[in-house]
Computed example of a mutant assay.
Amino acid sequence: MSIGLGIVLFVIGAILAFALNLTVDWIDLHLVGYILMAAGAVVVVIGIVLLARRRRTISTSQTSIDPATGSAVRRDESSAPDTTAY
C-alpha cells in the first residue's frame, strides 16, 4: 500500500509541477508539485525497505534416520530472524 501511495503522490506532484499552467496568488503550485514528488519518492523508498525487511526468514531442514524403525524423519522449520539484538 505504501508503494502505491508513493506513486500516486509522485504522479500528482508531477502533474502540478509540469502539466498545469495556472497562477494562483496564495500558493505556488510548482513548489507544491516538487514537494509532493519528493514525498512520493521517500514513501516509495520506505515501502521498499519495509517490504524487504518483512520477507526475510530463516528456513532450516533436517533429515535423520529413526534407529528404531529405520525410516527417514524430516523436520522443516521456518522463523523470522531475531531483531532484538540490534
Results as ranks from 00 to 15, higher is better:
residue 4 G to W: 00
residue 8 V to S: 07
residue 8 V to G: 05
residue 8 V to Y: 04
residue 10 F to P: 00
residue 11 V to D: 04
residue 13 G to R: 00
residue 13 G to S: 04
residue 13 G to T: 01
residue 14 A to N: 11
residue 15 I to W: 03
residue 15 I to Y: 04
residue 17 A to P: 02
residue 17 A to Q: 14
residue 18 F to T: 07
residue 19 A to H: 07
residue 19 A to Q: 08
residue 19 A to Y: 05
residue 20 L to P: 06
residue 20 L to D: 05
residue 21 N to C: 09
residue 23 T to Y: 12
residue 27 I to N: 04
residue 28 D to R: 05
residue 31 L to A: 14
residue 34 Y to S: 09
residue 34 Y to F: 09
residue 37 M to Y: 01
residue 39 A to M: 04
residue 39 A to R: 00
residue 40 G to N: 00
residue 41 A to Y: 00
residue 42 V to K: 02
residue 42 V to C: 06
residue 43 V to M: 14
residue 47 G to F: 00
residue 49 V to F: 13
residue 49 V to N: 05
residue 50 L to A: 15
residue 53 R to Y: 13
residue 53 R to K: 15
residue 53 R to F: 12
residue 54 R to P: 02
residue 54 R to E: 11
residue 55 R to V: 06
residue 58 I to T: 09
residue 61 S to M: 08
residue 64 S to W: 08
residue 66 D to S: 11
residue 68 A to N: 08
residue 68 A to M: 11
residue 69 T to V: 06
residue 71 S to V: 12
residue 71 S to N: 09
residue 71 S to H: 06
residue 73 V to S: 05
residue 74 R to M: 12
residue 74 R to W: 12
residue 75 R to H: 13
residue 75 R to N: 05
residue 78 S to T: 15
residue 79 S to V: 07
residue 80 A to N: 07
residue 83 T to C: 04
residue 84 T to H: 07
residue 84 T to C: 11
residue 85 A to R: 12
residue 85 A to K: 10
residue 85 A to N: 09
residue 85 A to E: 08
residue 86 Y to D: 15
